[in-house]
Amino acid sequence: MRLFVLTGAGISAESGMGTFRDTDGIWSQFDPMKLATPEGFAQDPALVHDFYNARRQNLLEASPNAAHTALARLEDALTQRGGDLYLCTQNIDDLHERAGSRHVAHMHGELRKARCMSCHAVTAWDGPLGLADNCPSCQKQGSLRPHIVWFGEIPLYMDDIAHALEEADMFVSIGTSGSVYPAAGFVSEARDLGIRTSEINLDPSDNAYLFDERHYGPASDAVPAWVDRIVKALEARG
């Protein structure tokens, strides 16, 4: 069995990571045009750095929840039986990896990394990031930016994502709003390919009507319950 799992902010909310598009989400408190666009960074890089420094510190204090660990368990179960889990996340946190997931495609980038605008090197980065920092690769000062895909930029790994979706037996969306493209379009692509689709979410997403199956509740309850069903089905096959 080959599963394509897409995760969004809802899977990390119970770990203390803020969602973006809920009524009390991050973008209801901050202006994304100032903090999450290349133009905003060019106009006030210090403001953007401060915003992501605070989010990076929040991440370092957070821990994976039961939904993250359940997906890591599913990856192991599938691998042991010759299957595959392609885990694609819109999240910029590393909670999947810290829970034990080995292969994660971060289509929107990673908070604990910095990217050089001069030499394009990507570097692990856990501390504060600012204009006084030098790129570890080319040594240029002030050239580092958060390794985040901002509004107006092309998400990462799109060719790999398209290939994995074409090869999947099931597409599962977990904790997503269904309003952020291109990820929100994956369910339609899966349906066109004849792939069964499932949504796991706290509440119905904007495109919930497109899914064959729907499971609602807190991620820490709904995801482990779903994983248990998949693992039992795998065990029954022998």
Rank of each mutant, 00 (worst) to 15 (best):
Gly175Met: 06
Met17Pro: 00
Gly178Lys: 04
Glu153Trp: 12
Gly185Lys: 13
Val122Ser: 07
Tyr216Arg: 01
Ile174Phe: 04
Leu74Gln: 06
Lys34Met: 00
Cys135Gln: 07
Glu153Cys: 10
Asp169Ile: 00
Asp228Ala: 07
Leu59Tyr: 06
Gly194Gln: 07
Phe30Ser: 09
Arg55Leu: 15
Ile148Cys: 09
His120Cys: 06
Arg56Ser: 13
Ala105Asn: 06
Ala36Trp: 04
Leu3Tyr: 05
Glu235His: 11
Arg56Ile: 15
Asp50Glu: 15
Pro32Leu: 10
Leu3Ala: 02
Lys232Val: 05
Ala70His: 08
Leu144Ile: 04
Asp24His: 09
Leu131Gln: 12
Thr69Met: 11
Arg56Tyr: 13
Cys138Lys: 06
Gly8Arg: 04
Gly109Met: 04
Ile200Ser: 12
Ala225Glu: 03
Glu235Ile: 07
Thr197Lys: 01
Ser220Lys: 05
Glu189Lys: 12
His147Pro: 09
Gln139Leu: 01
Gly109Ala: 00
Gly83Glu: 00
Ile195Lys: 00
Glu61Ser: 11
Ala222Val: 02
Trp125Cys: 06
Ala114Ile: 08
Ser28Trp: 05
Ala114Met: 09
Ala54Met: 13
Leu3Cys: 08
Gly83Cys: 02
Val5Pro: 00
Arg21Pro: 00
Phe51Leu: 10
Glu14Phe: 13
Arg55Phe: 13
Leu144Ser: 05
Ala114Gln: 05
Ser205Cys: 04
Ala225His: 03
Phe20Met: 02
Ser137Glu: 11
Gly127Tyr: 08
Leu131Lys: 13
Pro182Asp: 12
Gly100Ala: 01
Val149Ile: 15
Thr23Met: 02
Gly25Asn: 08
Asp50Cys: 14
Ser15Ile: 09
Asp228Cys: 12
Pro64Ser: 13
Pro128His: 05
Pro224Asp: 04
Arg112Cys: 01
Leu78Ala: 13
Asp159Val: 14
Ala46Val: 15
Asp31Gln: 10
His68Gly: 06
Met170Tyr: 01
Asp94Gly: 08
Met170Lys: 01
Phe171Trp: 05
Arg196Gly: 04
Trp150Ser: 11
Gln29Asp: 09
Ala124Ile: 01
Gly40Pro: 12
Arg81Tyr: 01
Gly185Met: 14
Ala236Met: 08
Gln139Ser: 15
Leu6Glu: 08
Gly16Thr: 03
Tyr52Arg: 09
Ile11Glu: 08
Glu14Gln: 04
His96Gly: 02
